[in-house]
Design a protein around this nucleic acid. Structure first.
Length: 273
DNA sequence: ACGAGCGCCTGTCGGC
DNA sequence: TGCCGACAGGCGCTCG
């Protein structure tokens, strides 16, 4: 479930508010690591030592990364293909996929759950170690149609894998990329430098729209990981192969682009060189 | 610079 | 029914 809108939803929940508990202000008393490879930096035993006694002073998102500034240093987490970050009472039972637990001084703990063990957690004094190479935030002011157009021209790559390259733009994954390309009428395999200025403007608008709608819906919930998001009910092409295009009625197709399942309308999204 | 192939993991689904 | 391969919301690596 983890693309920008889902991570944003998780972060907002972790921040609490409205009477709900928050990770902000919590002091880490102990750390449990049940799968060592989850800890990307430093090694797991150092990781524990570094975290104990630290206090979380904020919870933020950058691309698909969760970012927890501490009183000293920074904690980052990435869910990769599966998983969740929960804030819960220490009384709750530990679930089978709970890989890393941060026990706070009082009542609560934060739990990194990750079925496929692809997720990663970092502790570092320098955020650049983790998020230094990320492209712009798609919902920030410095991501403009002009910027997008110029960057598209600067590369000659298939548009879909380029949009999913986190150094190009931070936060898009398979779902929101397919949806944004559909909305803007761009074939997923088109060379990035074949896009016109008008194409780039449409794409920029579509990216921001689909992400905002995703956040408004609290993300998408599919398969066995359900977290209450509703965006799956608004998919126009993702997982819609064989159903009629909402705009022209042509059957939605599924192909592979850059090794990833890709859904598009062959009539609305014409390939051009 | 770019794209393909593959590894990392666990679970589900469709075909035979 | 049972098995087996393909596939899944991601990303880093190697190779050509």
């Amino acid at each position: 479930m983890p693309e920008l809108p889902e991570v944003e939803t998780i972060i907002r929940r972790l921040k609490g508010g409205g009477g709900a508990p928050s990770v902000v202000g919590q002091r880490i008393q102990s750390v449990e690591v049940n799968w060592g490879k989850i800890i990307a930096l430093p090694d797991p035993s150092q990781f524990k030592q570094n975290l104990i006694g630290k206090t979380i002073i904020d919870a933020k998102r950058r691309g698909k990364f969760m970012h927890f500034p501490l009183d000293i240093g920074h904690l980052f987490a990435h869910l990769r293909m599966s998983g969740d970050m929960r804030l819960e009472k220490k009384l709750e039972s530990v679930e089978p996929y709970d890989r890393v637990l941060l026990n706070f001084s009082e009542d609560y703990r934060m739990v990194f759950s990750n079925i496929r063990k692809f997720g990663r957690i970092w502790y570092t004094n320098d955020p650049k170690d983790v998020i230094g190479k990320l492209g712009p935030e798609p919902l920030s002011e410095n991501f403009t149609p002009q910027h997008l157009y110029e960057e598209l021209q600067a590369h000659s790559r298939q548009i879909k894998p380029l949009l999913m390259d986190q150094t190009f733009i931070a936060g898009l994954g398979n779902i929101y990329t397919d949806e944004a390309l559909y909305i803007s009428g761009i074939h997923p395999m088109r060379p990035s430098d074949s896009l016109t200025k008008a194409d780039a403007e449409h794409l920029h608008h579509a990216i921001q729209n689909v992400l905002r709608e995703g956040i408004r819906s609290l993300g998408a919930s599919i398969d066995w990981i359900y977290r209450g998001g509703q965006f799956q009910n608004y998919f126009k092409v993702y997982k819609k192969e064989g159903t009629p295009c909402p705009r022209c009625g042509t059957s939605i197709e599924k192909i592979k682009v850059g090794q990833r399942g890709t859904h598009f309308c062959p009539r609305c999204q014409i390939f051009k060189e």
